[in-house]
Nucleic acid binder design. Structure first.
Length: 273
DNA sequence: CGGGCGGCCTGGAGGC
DNA sequence: TGCCTCCAGGCCGCCC
């Protein structure tokens, strides 16, 4: 479910509540995630204070004292929420961090594509999960030339390119469709046939879409919620994603759906060339 | 070697 | 109501 905006919304929703609190007990209820939960590494986090919350790509990073970072990835269906510690576990609750404040931070993930890791804070970027990640689209130096440089010598459709985390992180299926719509670029256009001006438009569109989605609390199609359980609103602002058969908000032609690399892509056949 | 596809899971929606 | 099929926001690994 969650792409960059949803993880950033989650991070911001937890930011006022977690730093300064302390993990008193780690409860692993179900180890089955994308990688089996490393129970002993997690249990060793008990007793540590929470220092800060960061985000890299679609990973939430919870920095703890003693040089450890708890890494959480929500996969498709993960939810990380704060709850009273005495609340009974919800279905598919995999991990709960019981906090000194009496609350618990719990991870629920029905489809089990998510991930929880305890890693050393130093050198995190060299961990295999992070080592090959590309540019952060919200970094100030991200722009059309970032994309153009990454595209040099590559082939294939621009939509798959935008979703390649080795190029630019955080853009998943929803925001790739929305970025292409805003930039007026057809999803099947080959990356070898995109001008510098078009790369600039694509980069600017990606940044604008991601920023607006964050401002509107993320996209809740089914089950995204922030750390307080609040849904997002950006689904109302989606121009193309999920709107096949509806009129394009710009020109009125009907939005179409096509399948690329096994994923649905939504576009306007008139605005996107 | 890079690109594309299947597979991993469960649940919800829609058709019959 | 119930059963069946299809589809879903991510990511990895295998295949060509």
């Amino acid at each position: 479910m969650p792409e960059l905006p949803e993880i950033e919304v989650l991070r911001r929703s937890l930011e006022p509540h977690l730093p300064g609190d302390r993990i008193v007990r780690v409860e692993v209820r179900n180890r089955e995630l994308r990688e089996p939960v490393a129970v002993r590494a997690l249990v060793r986090l008990a007793g540590r204070a929470i220092l800060s919350l960061r985000r890299r790509a679609k990973y939430l990073l919870i920095d703890l004292e003693g040089g450890r970072t708890l890494v959480v990835h929500l996969g498709m269906s993960g939810r990380l929420t704060l709850a009273p510690g005495a609340l009974p576990p919800e279905p598919h609750e995999h991990v709960a961090l019981h906090l000194a404040s009496g609350r618990k931070l719990r991870l629920r993930d029905p489809r089990r594509f998510g991930l929880v890791l305890a890693l050393p804070t130093a050198g995190l970027e060299r961990d295999p999960h992070f080592a090959r990640l590309g540019a952060e689209p919200l970094d100030p130096d991200f722009g059309g030339s970032t994309l153009a440089r990454a595209a040099a010598g590559r082939r294939g459709p621009v939509k798959s390119f935008l979703m390649d985390a080795g190029v630019v992180v955080g853009v998943g299926n929803i925001y790739a469709s929305e970025t292409l719509f805003r930039a007026g670029v057809h999803p099947l256009r080959s990356v070898g046939r995109i001008s510098a001006a078009r790369w600039d438009r694509l980069a600017a569109a990606a940044v604008a879409v991601l920023r607006q989605a964050i401002a509107e609390g993320g996209t809740t199609l089914n089950d995204f919620a922030d750390g307080q359980g609040r849904s997002g609103e950006f689904q109302v602002s989606l121009a193309a994603y999920g709107r096949q058969g509806e009129p394009c908000p710009r020109c009125g032609h009907l939005i179409r759906r096509l399948v690329q690399a096994g994923r649905s892509t939504f576009y306007c056949p008139h605005c996107q060339r």
